[in-house]
Simulated scan of single mutants.
Amino acid sequence: MVAKPGGVFCVEGNWNNDLAARGSVLPTLDLLERLGAIRYIHRRTATPQELRFYVETWLSRKYAAYHVGFFALHGAPTKLHLSEAHTVGLAELGSWTAGRCEGKRLYFGSCSALRASDTTLAEFLRETKAAMVCGFTKEIDWIESAALETVVLNNLVNGSRVDSVERLMKTVRWAPLAQHLGFRVVYANGRST
């Protein structure tokens, strides 16, 4: 019997007010699922209330196998933009999830969201109890970040070591793109790349 692949819980923001726009992280998630690398849950969110509802649901016992949280949102330093009208800070997200992300790996596919002090991110990890957080410190290009996302998500789900993404980002193949996008990893023990 083949074991089920690990799970990714993804919340994606309302990228703009154009309802006909089709930009999404869904093709990346679909690709990885079709390859048998992951299972995923994907939800769109445009308000803090929706985000909190979905995060609360994700953290319920029912979805315990979805140990990777993927926040596909616009961003700014320590902030997540859900829509043009709504923003949630990492501190607020941390208070919603306090003590309930034990062992989870959090990925912020958001421009500049991890441009923060080591102290700020260590406090976020202490509060949430997540094993690690990773994401971008710079403004990112959609296509470049999508290329990196495929290997990051696969590694977050299937890497047996919590530092498997960091190890991958130091390889000759991925290091230049990771550096160009300002990809950063911070661990619960305080270590940061």
Rank of each mutant, 00 (worst) to 15 (best):
G99C: 10
L114H: 01
L90A: 02
A91V: 11
H74E: 02
H81I: 04
G99F: 11
E127K: 15
V151P: 01
R126T: 12
G135I: 12
A72F: 02
Q49S: 04
S83Y: 01
S160Q: 13
R44I: 05
T45M: 13
V88N: 00
E144N: 14
A64N: 06
A65Y: 03
R115M: 14
S60V: 01
G69I: 11
H67S: 09
L80M: 11
T78C: 11
T47A: 11
G99N: 06
E144Q: 15
G89W: 11
R161T: 03
L148W: 08
M169P: 07
L148Q: 06
R126I: 02
R105C: 04
E56V: 09
P48H: 03
A130T: 07
R115S: 09
S145T: 09
T87P: 03
E144P: 13
L121V: 06
D163W: 14
E139L: 13
Y66Q: 05
F53Q: 08
M169I: 13
K79R: 05
E139D: 15
E92M: 12
H74R: 05
R100Q: 15
H81D: 02
V88H: 00
G159W: 09
F71N: 00
K138H: 13
V133E: 01
N154E: 12
L73W: 07
P48E: 00
C134M: 08
L93C: 01
W58V: 05
R167K: 14
K104D: 06
A64D: 09
P48F: 00
K129L: 10
L148K: 08
S110H: 08
T120H: 07
Q49M: 07
E144V: 12
V133C: 13
W58G: 04
P77D: 06
E127C: 10
V162G: 05
Y66D: 05
E139M: 15
I140D: 01
P77F: 11
K129E: 11
T47L: 11
D118P: 08
E92K: 14
R44L: 10
R105V: 10
A130M: 11
A91T: 05
Q49F: 01
T137C: 12
L82V: 01
A122M: 10
K138F: 14
R161K: 12
R105T: 10
R126L: 10
T119M: 14
T150L: 04
N155M: 14
L73H: 14
H67T: 05
T78F: 10
A72E: 08
A116G: 06
Y66G: 06
V68S: 02
Q49H: 02
A98G: 05
V157C: 03
T87F: 04
R61N: 07
F53S: 09
C111N: 09
V55Q: 04
L121Y: 04
F136D: 07
R115V: 05
L51S: 04
K79V: 00
L93P: 00
D118C: 10
L93W: 12
C134N: 08
L51W: 03
A46K: 00
M169T: 15
H86K: 12
L106V: 14
V157L: 01
V88K: 00
L82G: 00
A147L: 15
E127N: 14
P77T: 08
L106I: 15
K170P: 01
K129Y: 08
N154D: 15
L156N: 06
S160P: 06
E166N: 15
